[in-house]
Simulated assay, not measured.
Amino acid sequence: MTTTAHDITYRLEQKRRVQADFPGPKSVALTERRKAVVAAGVASSVPVFVADADGGIIHDVDGNSFIDLGSGIAVTSVGASDPAVVGAVKEAVEHFTHTCFMVTPYEGYVAVAEQLNRLTPGDHEKRTVLFNSGAEAVENAVKVARLATGRDAVVAFDHAYHGRTNLTMALTAKAMPYKTNFGPFAPEVYRMPMSYPFREENPEITGAEAAKRAITMIEKQIGGEQVAAIIIEPIQGEGGFIVPADGFLPALADWAKDKGIVFIADEVQSGFCRTGEWFAVNHEGVVPDIITMAKGIAGGMPLSAITGRADLLDAVHPGGLGGTYGGNPVACAAALAA
């Protein structure tokens, strides 16, 4: 059965339907196979195995259908198996799946960079680099900030989540399951208090006051002139979907600019219209020096990016940025369609 919404005709009926046995026998059998071959450290939230997905619905191997509230952890923002994305991927994969942009470049990478330079906040001259995952984007944003400023210290915030690699674990605030027993972590990372209106001891504290609190701690504990970058999720995800008080982000960004600190907005989860704007920083008119992106960027294909001031990204020596699969041509085609 197909259903139509707006101008999209879905292959699967967009309806939840769960049978009595949950999980079903096929998912149970696959779970046993999984236990024998997949590392226990890889956990899954739902005890069923997917067979098909379309729009906002997932079908499992036992014939159940579920509303997809996870979106692959904030990835399939345009819906699963979107026809435009699928069509772009099919066309791209028929030509070439890989050459490595650092060896033999291709137009798709350039086209994605053009779009990101256009869509991200600010009318300044920008440059973009493509990678595979959000953690890669964050790592490279920090690399650029450290090289461009000649400084080492990086400021992150309470409740932050930035990834699972060594540096991004250091930036992440949550111990379990992300950090416990995985240290030692990368040095010169400092944690500051977030604006968290729902949990503030003083609920009357404004965004500007919360920013002043963090800035005072930075000045006392590190010294503003020693800080290469401030990295922050404009709306935090893993920490509990925390929306800072109005004025918090602009005050931090303004202070960073005065101190020559690179202001990095980690929009891996909040980007690509998930907050009602292209990027969450747009709600308060904040223009980051560098913005990190992934997840919703390519409709489910692995792709991430950093876009930032041209003078920052062009400061890096040739060969200092990149990666074998970064900006894969098939993922670039999916991104342009998404």
Rank of each mutant, 00 (worst) to 15 (best):
G122H: 11
E94S: 15
V89C: 09
G239Y: 03
T292A: 13
T275Q: 13
K257L: 07
A74H: 07
I297R: 01
I8A: 05
M1A: 10
H95E: 14
A245F: 13
D266M: 02
C273D: 15
C273L: 10
I230Y: 02
D258P: 02
M169W: 03
A173V: 04
A135L: 00
F66R: 07
L69N: 10
A228V: 06
V286F: 01
A137P: 02
L12G: 04
V144K: 03
S44T: 14
A315S: 15
V48A: 09
A84C: 06
I264L: 04
A88M: 05
L147T: 15
G224Q: 04
A5V: 14
G300I: 00
G87C: 03
N328W: 01
E32W: 05
G319L: 07
A39E: 10
P197D: 06
T3I: 11
A160P: 00
H283C: 04
P83D: 01
C100P: 06
V37L: 12
D158Q: 13
V48S: 08
G63C: 07
A29H: 09
F49C: 05
F157K: 01
A265K: 00
A80F: 15
V50Q: 10
G72E: 00
G207Y: 07
A334E: 00
T172H: 03
A315Q: 06
K220D: 12
V286R: 01
H317R: 14
V142W: 02
F22N: 09
K257F: 04
N328M: 08
D7I: 09
Q269I: 10
M176V: 15
V61Q: 04
P197G: 07
V37M: 13
L119Y: 13
P244L: 07
R164F: 10
I231K: 00
N140V: 03
A111V: 09
P244M: 08
G56Q: 15
A53R: 11
I242H: 02
I231D: 00
A74K: 08
I242R: 06
Y325H: 14
G322V: 09
G24T: 07
T324N: 09
I205E: 12
F22S: 08
F241P: 01
R146Y: 04
T180N: 11
V154D: 00
C332K: 01
D314T: 14
L171S: 01
P318Q: 05
G322Y: 06
T128I: 06
E13Y: 08
V110C: 08
L167F: 08
A298I: 04
A298V: 07
D68G: 04
M1P: 10
P83Q: 03
A145V: 01
L303G: 00
A36R: 14
L313Q: 00
K15C: 08
T275E: 12
N140T: 11
I264Y: 00
L69W: 13
P177V: 05
A315E: 02
W278H: 13
I264D: 03
W255F: 14
P302D: 05
L147Y: 15
A170H: 04
G237C: 09
R34M: 14
V129A: 13
S45A: 12
D158Y: 13
A175M: 14
V38D: 07
V42M: 15
Q236S: 11
G247L: 08
E277Q: 12
I230P: 01
C273E: 11
P234D: 03
K143S: 11
